[in-house]
Amino acid sequence: DFYKILGVPRSASIKDIKKAYRKLALQLHPDRNPDDPQAQEKFQDLGAAYEVLSDSEKRKQYD
């Protein structure tokens, strides 16, 4: 669930989604977690979630 990945409720605004994405991107970035083999995958999932939820048309289709 993309909302769960970003840690935001379904009613979150685009601004809230962007804020959550930036915070998590810093935490999950593979360069900051060189010892975590799943860091790259988590970071890619985060990017996919943000791409869908930050675009109003894609978000409507997802919901």
Rank of each mutant, 00 (worst) to 15 (best):
Q44N: 10
Y50R: 02
V52H: 08
Y21G: 03
V52T: 12
S13A: 11
S56V: 14
V52D: 01
P34K: 13
Y50T: 01
V52M: 06
K4L: 04
P30F: 02
L46I: 10
L6C: 05
A49C: 04
V52E: 04
A12L: 00
A20I: 03
Y50A: 02
G47F: 15
L28Y: 09
H29E: 13
R10S: 14
P30T: 04
G7V: 00
P9W: 03
P37C: 08
K42L: 07
P37E: 10
S56K: 11
D55P: 01
S56A: 14
D35A: 12
L53Y: 00
R59S: 01
Y3A: 00
S11P: 01
L26V: 09
K23M: 14
D55S: 10
K18F: 03
S13M: 07
K4T: 15
S56G: 14
A12P: 00
K4E: 04
I14M: 15
K15V: 13
F43V: 05
A48N: 11
Y21P: 03
L6R: 01
Q61G: 11
F43P: 00
D55F: 02
P9S: 13
I5V: 10
N33W: 10
K58M: 08
P34C: 06
P30I: 02
A12E: 03
P30K: 05
Q44G: 09
L28R: 09
L46A: 09
Y3E: 02
I5A: 08
S56C: 13
K18R: 15
E57K: 13
K18A: 11
L53C: 01
D55L: 02
R22E: 14
Y50M: 08
D45K: 13
R10H: 08
V8A: 02
D45W: 08
D36F: 04
K58R: 14
Y21N: 02
A48R: 14
D35H: 09
S13V: 06
E41D: 07
A39P: 01
K4Y: 06
P34E: 06
K58L: 08
E51R: 08
N33I: 05
P30V: 03
L24T: 06
P37H: 08
K42C: 06
Y21L: 00
E57S: 10
Q61V: 14
A20H: 07
P37I: 07
E51S: 09
V52F: 04
R59L: 01
L53S: 01
D55E: 04
G7R: 09
I17T: 02
L26M: 13
H29W: 04
P37V: 11
E57L: 11
G7Y: 00
R59I: 00
Q61L: 11
S54P: 05
P9L: 09
K60Q: 13
K60M: 11
K60F: 12
Q61D: 08
Y21T: 02
V52K: 02
F43A: 04
E51D: 08
A48E: 15
A12I: 02
L53E: 00
I5Y: 07
K60N: 10
G7M: 04
A12C: 10
D35N: 10
K18D: 12
K4V: 05
Y21D: 03
Y62G: 01
R59P: 03
L53F: 00
P34T: 11
E41G: 11
K18S: 09
K42T: 06
R32K: 11
Y3T: 03
D31T: 12
I14K: 15
P9R: 10
S11V: 06
L24N: 05
I14F: 09
R22K: 14
R32A: 11
H29T: 07
Q61N: 14
G47Y: 06
S11C: 09
S13I: 02
H29G: 06
A20L: 01
R32I: 10
A25I: 14
A25T: 12
A39K: 06
D1A: 03
L26A: 15
K42G: 04
R10C: 08
Q44R: 13
Q38C: 12
I14E: 15
K4P: 01
I17Q: 03
P37F: 06
A39G: 06
K4N: 13
G47P: 03
R10V: 14
H29R: 12
A49F: 02
P34F: 09
P30Y: 02
D16Y: 07
D16R: 15
V52Q: 05
R22T: 14
L46K: 00
K4A: 07
D55W: 01
I14P: 10
L46D: 01
K58W: 03
P9K: 15
Q38E: 08
I5L: 13
R22V: 12
N33S: 11
G7L: 01
Q44S: 12
S56Q: 11
A12S: 07
Q38I: 05
R22D: 14
A49R: 00
P37A: 13
K23T: 13
F2A: 06
D35S: 10
I17G: 02
D45S: 11
P37R: 10
A20V: 05
L24I: 10
E41M: 12
I17M: 02
I14Q: 08
Q61W: 07
E51A: 11
R32M: 09
D35V: 08
F43K: 03
V52A: 12
L26D: 12
F2G: 03
L6Q: 00
K58V: 03
K4R: 12
H29L: 07
Y50V: 05
Y50D: 03
P9T: 11
P30D: 02
L6F: 05
L53M: 05
L28P: 04
R59E: 01
Q38N: 08
V8N: 00
A12N: 00
A20E: 06
Y3M: 00
K18M: 09
L26S: 10
I14G: 14
I17D: 02
A49L: 00
Y62P: 01
P30M: 03
L53W: 03
L24R: 12
D35M: 13
G7A: 07
D35G: 13
R22F: 09
A49Q: 00
Y62F: 13
R59A: 02
N33D: 04
D55M: 03
Y21V: 01
K58F: 06
Q27H: 05
P34M: 13
